[in-house]
């Protein structure tokens, strides 16, 4: 991550020309294009009450470190997710507390379920505490990879780039995390028919 700042890849565009980190003006366009999803990710991990600070710090950090952004390795969006992930990592206790609340009462009460998900939610409800505890119990590095896949939708390649870890490590951390989640959810035929069949 040492190349000079440049325009991002075409798929990162928000419809109004290429995004660039070059100066404060174009950085504003990056903010506009990416604020909502970065906030969503941070609020999911740390709760809405604390997301605002971390999200502001994410964009400030991005601006300060824009010279180290390498567009050949990852898009701006993925890069911001990487910065946010590192900042979230400084709030481990808060993340654990947020997970505990999610486990007991489900997602932020201000953020209701999508209609089509209500039925699913009911079936998963009884396992929320177990799942939340399993996520909280993961090694932080495994959890980061897991959530960058599940919540941010980043590819293995993007995760390797923005967390600065080898490509193979992304896969091994992800499978370890998923294995632990499956174990926590095991025994519920609604969620894991294969294992229930074996058991």
């Amino acid at each position: 991550m040492t190349a000079p700042p440049r325009a991002v890849r075409p798929e990162e565009e928000a419809g109004a020309g290429p995004l660039s980190l070059d100066d404060p003006e174009s950085f504003g366009a990056v903010f506009d294009a990416c604020f909502a999803e970065i906030h969503r990710y941070v609020a999911q991990r740390l709760g809405t009450d604390h997301a605002e600070d971390v999200v502001a710090e994410t964009f400030l950090t991005a601006f300060r470190k824009r010279a180290s952004y390498d567009p050949s390795r990852a898009g701006v969006r993925a890069w911001l997710y990487g910065i946010a992930t590192n900042l979230v990592g400084r709030h481990r206790r808060l993340e654990v507390r947020t997970l505990r609340a999610l486990g007991r009462y489900g997602p932020d009460a201000d953020a209701p379920a999508h209609d089509e998900r209500v039925a699913v939610r009911v079936s998963a409800q009884s396992l929320r505490p177990e799942l939340a505890a399993a996520v909280a119990g993961l090694d932080r590095r495994d959890r980061d990879v897991l959530l960058l896949v599940a919540l941010a939708g980043l590819s293995h390649e993007e995760i390797a780039a923005v967390l600065d870890i080898p490509y193979g490590t992304v896969g091994s951390r992800l499978s370890r995390a998923r294995r632990k989640l499956r174990a926590a959810l095991g025994g519920n035929p609604m969620l894991d028919p294969e294992e229930a069949g074996r058991g």
């Binding site: 906030h39 999200v55 999610l102 997602p107 799942l131």
Partner: peptide, 28 residues
């Protein structure tokens, strides 16, 4: 439904208050 889907259900969709973006932008 696999465990990643269950995980997304656990986390849900947080909401932002109407001024959040403008407020954060001001700070940034």
């Amino acid at each position: 439904m696999d465990e990643l889907e269950t995980l997304r259900e656990l986390y849900g969709e947080p909401q932002a208050d109407p001024f959040l973006k403008a407020r954060t932008r001001g700070r940034v």
